[in-house]
Amino acid sequence: MTKLTATRLSETPGLNPRPSRKKPLLKKPLLKRIAKGGFVAALPFLAPALAAYVVFVIGPMFSAVRLSLYKWSGFTTDQQVFVGFQNYVRLFTKDPVFWTAVQNSIIWVLLSLVIPTSLGLMMALALNRPVFGRNVFRSVFYIPGVLAPIAIANMWRWMYNPNYGIFSDISKTLHLGDGSGVTFLSDPKVAIYAVFAAFVWQVAGLNMVLFLAGLQSVSKELVESAKLDGANAWQVFRNVTLPALRPTVVVVLVLTIVNSIKVFDLVVGMTGGGPAQKSQVLALWSYTQSFLNHDFGLGNATATVLLLITLVLVIPYMIWSTKGNED
């Protein structure tokens, strides 16, 4: 069926996406040069993706930047008033929660560059050899990564329950603290780290799988010959495994940064940013201002800051990886 339709479509003159061959000319207008370059042929394949991407991703992002310069409640009936950089001034000088959110987002990125990544690497190293029950181990470590973050948030909220949760139970059995149970999520100093623990549980297995993939590119022969030369396990890891893993490490670190900046669901589900907004993060604060405080100006200014931070962190990687691909 598909075969027939496909052939017939490509034979229909109007639908054949190949450009008609013309004599080469030296100087053509830009549009024609683009056409000659095959863009017309590519367009039918690109158009749906481009349309969806521009309307639902790029467009809204530019709108966010534009709206950050306006005062607006977000209601259709209200006017958008241009206020220049006033929203940013308000954000930077009169919004203490914004700085808490910035601080928490930075803490989050830094911690996640160290903890779930090294855990993932250790899991991968442990499971990169024939181990009894290896598949079960891998699955248990990886499964949290496929669960909805909002479900994970609920699971961990229950574990942190001050009266009946796991941690309270443990602290009571071990007679830690004053016996009133743990109150991680309602402690302004601890809340963000308590949420972060759930994040570690969620993403470490993902990193493990990436590292396991990377470990396949480590040359067995090189490891063997290093061992024959009398290198111990650490030396082999340091001098053979780690250099071969470098591209994987870069990918893991970039994904970690991207995922850390995006954190939203976990915080919504576990603390909602509280107590007293002490566990706010940028992504959630932007949402809160736009949709709960009905201040689209501040919300989109926060979103723009988030966008800029992401670009600053990600563009160096993009440049690095395109260079790498051209080799």
Binding site: V57, L67, V258, A283, L284, A303, L311
Partner: peptide
Amino acid sequence: LGSMVPIQVALGPLF
């Protein structure tokens, strides 16, 4: 690049 940018940036205008 689009795969790197957080969805939340576009949430308001997307709505």
